[in-house]
Design a protein around this nucleic acid. Structure first.
Lengths: 241, 241
DNA sequence: ATGTTTGTTCCATGACACGGAACAGTTCCG
DNA sequence: CGGAACTGTTCCGTGTCATGGAACAAACAT
């Protein structure tokens, strides 16, 4: 019952789209009456919402999700620094954390003319295709890096690194510079520079700026990104008060 | 089972704090073994997380909540205008929608020295104590206003309006000016000016700026707030893609 | 040491989730 | 139009699994 509900809600995770009953049946493998009853219950609770024949995630989940302390507190202390970074660069600013082999986006700030990116708050992308991911990976313990290098490297664009050798080299570079770069590996036409956020010695998060390649000047962005990440790290040290 | 889980998770809604098993038993009225089993299941699903003897909302909920289309889309189209508003005022910027008799906060942008406020993303406050709430209430259909004026008016501070007469008057004023003001009604020492966001003729959201009373100059903030709210309304008209 | 509170495990009972099947309502195409 | 193919909904007998009392174990207080 509970597990089935979770399974059902997980169908929505990739992009939060809207699905019909039959699609949910197909995606979950549950029986039709079960999905029917389940969705009805979830709608009643506000966890799903129904518009015509389509189901979408409901407002109650938004409320609950926004209150998750881990995420909320980090986002809250990072926000002023992300604002600084946005004002300094006027480009798309990201904050993310690692979860298993993926980066989960916590915040995403942008202005009026933002290019398309696959990143969405609450969304997940492979560590190896994103600046955020590389920044965190470079400063995680070796066991994780090995796991990543062992498995096949997923790609989001033709430019995504899929060669373990090259990835390993790039991670070493960010280990000395404290900065991770990425060009067109997450989205074609977009580059990114990222820096890790530390808490208690380990990289718990990362900050990045994403820029259309046409005006992508990493050297100019680097100081601002570094400053922001450092600022967040200090604020985390400083405590929540 | 599902309903009990929802009931259990609702215990966390006010502030997302951490609770012990016994506290959850007391708050829900469920039996001890039931809560024990339920929390174990929820932890396994990532909906709760356990640290020692305390339970908190889990990361999975954050992911699901961030993907809720209604909220995400509005937040996404409003964000650039909120950024403009923040840069123009350098004060705390809010975006919120109405849900029943309360305002639910969707976004909250602030800089380094932010004063304390009861508002939290995903949190709820009474319509009548907040600028956002008044802005939306003033442009909702009369039936809602009557419901609000009928019931007892909740108060967050000694300054919160509790007199229906005065509230009604203040709503009329915002109907002509298109702006809602509030001084120390949500938090002592903080004033606020808000403007409604329209979509399809009705006020679906509102934008506000909150400022310490010491430097609260409503007339100076008004144009920026109005501009931001208008911009969001236009962007919503323009369509999501 | 002793009582008290909190967390965990066990188990017999019964409620209710389950899915096959049959029905209704829509859409699609000839 | 009309029938075929699909989707959404309801029904109901079966079997599962959630339920809470009770007993136990751990942690804490005094």
């Amino acid at each position: 019952m509970l597990e089935k509900s979770a399974f059902l809600l997980d169908v929505f995770t990739p992009d939060g789209g809207a699905y019909r009953l039959t699609e949910l049946v197909a995606a979950t493998g549950l029986s039709k009456p079960t999905v029917h009853r389940l969705t009805a219950d979830l709608v009643r609770l506000g966890w799903l919402e129904r518009e015509g024949a389509r189901y979408r995630l409901g407002p109650k989940l938004f409320e609950l999700g926004s209150l998750v302390p881990r995420r909320r507190d980090l986002r809250e202390t990072a926000l002023p620094f992300l604002q600084d970074l946005f004002e300094a660069t006027r480009e798309i600013v990201h904050l993310g954390v690692r979860e298993d082999l993926e980066v989960v986006y916590l915040e995403r700030i942008h202005g009026h003319e933002a290019v398309w990116l696959p990143s969405r708050i609450g969304g997940r992308l492979p560590l190896t295709c994103t600046g955020l991911g590389k920044a965190m990976l470079a400063f995680s313990d070796a066991e994780l890096t090995e796991r990543v290098l062992a498995g096949p490297l997923p790609g989001l664009t033709p430019f995504s690194v899929t060669d373990p050798e090259r990835l390993s080299l790039s991670l070493e570079k960010t280990q000395v510079s404290g900065l991770a770069y990425e060009e067109q590996e997450a989205a074609e036409g977009v580059g990114c520079v990222a820096a890790p956020v530390f808490e208690g010695g380990s990289a718990v998060a990362a900050v990045s700026v994403a820029v259309p390649v046409a005006r992508f000047r990493p050297a100019r962005l680097a100081p601002a990104v570094r400053t922001a990440a450092l600022g967040v790290s200090r604020a985390l040290r400083g405590g929540a008060g």
